[in-house]
Amino acid sequence: MNSVAATEARRAAVLGSPIAHSLSPVLHRAAYAALGLSDWSYDRFEVTEADLAAFMERLDPSWAGLSLTMPLKRAVIPLLDGISDTAASVEAVNTVVLTDDGRRVGDNTDIPGMIAALRERGVEKVEYAAVLGAGATASSALAALSRICTGPVTAYVRTHTRAEEMRGWGERLGVEVHTADWAEAGHAFDAPLVIATTPAGATDPLVPYVPERPGTLFDVLYDPWPTPLAAAWAEQGGAVVGGLDLLVHQAVLQVEQMTGRSPAPLAAMRAAGEAALAAR
Rank of each mutant, 00 (worst) to 15 (best):
S262M: 12
D245M: 06
V255Q: 12
L229R: 08
A239N: 13
S262R: 15
V252A: 11
G238I: 12
H249A: 13
A234E: 15
A232M: 05
G260F: 09
F218I: 03
W233T: 01
G237H: 08
A231V: 03
V252L: 04
V241C: 04
P211V: 06
W233P: 09
L244T: 10
A234D: 14
P265L: 07
A231M: 11
G238H: 13
E235S: 13
Q236C: 13
W233H: 04
E235Y: 09
P265Y: 08
P263F: 01
L217S: 05
L253Q: 13
F218E: 00
L253E: 09
Q257D: 03
L221Q: 14
P224S: 08
P228K: 12
A239E: 15
P214Y: 06
G237N: 09
W233N: 01
P214E: 06
A234W: 09
G243Y: 10
G238R: 12
P265R: 02
T227E: 06
T259V: 08
V241N: 08
T259Y: 05
G243T: 07
G215I: 11
P214V: 02
V255T: 15
R261W: 14
G260M: 11
D245H: 13
D223M: 12
T216C: 11
Q250H: 05
P224R: 07
T259L: 04
A251R: 10
P226V: 01
H249K: 13
L244E: 05
P263Y: 04
E256A: 04
T227G: 03
L247R: 04
M258L: 07
D245F: 10
A251Q: 10
V240C: 10
P226Y: 02
V255S: 07
L246G: 02
S262A: 15
G260W: 11
L221F: 01
V210H: 01
P228T: 11
P211I: 07
P263E: 02
A264P: 03
V255L: 12
L244F: 05
Y209W: 14
E212R: 13
L246P: 10
Q254E: 12
L229W: 02
P228W: 13
R213K: 14
Q250L: 07
D245A: 14
D245N: 14
T259M: 09
Q254K: 01
T227F: 03
T259N: 06
G215D: 11
V252D: 03
G243L: 08
Q250P: 07
A232N: 09
T227H: 01
D245S: 13
P228A: 11
S262T: 15
